[in-house]
């Protein structure tokens, strides 16, 4: 373990609003191979949570890796995680390092 080792953070977003309220770009076979948060909308669940930041890269959603998933597939996974009634939250594993 060293100072240059990438760090990741688990962020639990409660479904506190009717929308998640993030915009993502990236996915497999693009310049940005893992989805990156480009916008956080005020009043959305992600904004209310207060722990997600623009620029963070999403590594996992509810423990499912986004590596190798194309943009639409990654977006669908996140949308479904927010929509399902099985959980009242979505867990994001994020990193600041691109």
């Amino acid at each position: 373990p060293g100072l240059l080792e990438p760090t990741s953070t688990l962020v639990r977003v409660a479904k506190s609003a009717s929308t998640l309220g993030i915009a993502i770009e990236g996915g497999a076979n693009t310049r940005q191979p893992l989805p990156r948060i480009v916008t956080i909308q005020r009043g959305g669940s992600a904004h209310n949570c207060g722990q997600l930041r623009v620029g963070q890269v999403i590594l996992e959603v509810n423990g499912v890796s986004l590596r190798g998933r194309e943009h639409r597939d990654a977006a669908r996974l996140i949308a479904e995680a927010f929509k399902t009634n099985e959980r009242d939250h979505v867990d994001f594993l994020v990193t600041e390092f691109n």
Partner: peptide
């Protein structure tokens, strides 16, 4: 065949 030097940009999706 043309060799692509950079990958294409991604679309952006609002969730």
């Amino acid at each position: 065949r043309e060799k692509r030097l950079t990958l294409p940009p991604s679309e952006i999706t609002l969730l």
